[in-house]
């Protein structure tokens, strides 16, 4: 673990840990980590409803001087075929990166790649 006052921590959160959370626990956990200046990569991302809830929570948390919001990049759910749905296959949303907007910046995203930069010089406060 990176020391809190040096550098920016970048945490990879496993599918297993995420699956143990309820939706609201997951959102609380993410917000807490992001507010502490951590960047998270979730092995599987948030459902569309969780995404809107996270944006809504973010808007409530924004205060001009310490928190300007989040940067988030992920992929949506893969489309399931008719037969997969019949057999109850539910695809989970895929990998997602989330961080505080003053530290993490989305550069480019397409079908295969999410490109981000970490804004230097901001990790030390």
């Amino acid at each position: 673990m990176v020391k809190k006052d040096k550098g920016i921590s970048f945490n990879l959160i496993s599918r297993k840990k995420l699956n143990n959370f309820s939706s609201s626990e997951k959102l609380k956990y993410i917000m807490k980590e992001v507010r502490q200046g951590r960047i998270l990569v979730l092995e599987h991302g948030l459902t569309p409803t969780e995404q809107t809830a996270l944006i809504e929570n973010t808007m409530k948390e924004i205060d001009h001087d310490t928190f300007i919001g989040i940067e988030m990049g992920g992929y949506g759910e893969e489309k399931t075929s008719f037969f997969q749905r019949v057999f109850g296959v539910i695809k989970k949303p895929r990998m997602t990166v989330i961080g505080p907007a003053h530290l993490l910046k989305m550069v480019h995203k397409d079908h295969d790649k999410i490109e981000t930069t970490i804004i230097p010089g901001k990790g030390e406060n």
């Binding site: 569309p48 409803t49 995404q51 940067e71 988030m72 990049g73 992929y75 989305m106």
Partner: peptide
């Protein structure tokens, strides 16, 4: 993300 989130919600 905003586009992806809006589309995801409507698709769901």
């Amino acid at each position: 993300q905003v586009n992806v989130t809006i589309i995801g919600n409507l698709e769901a």
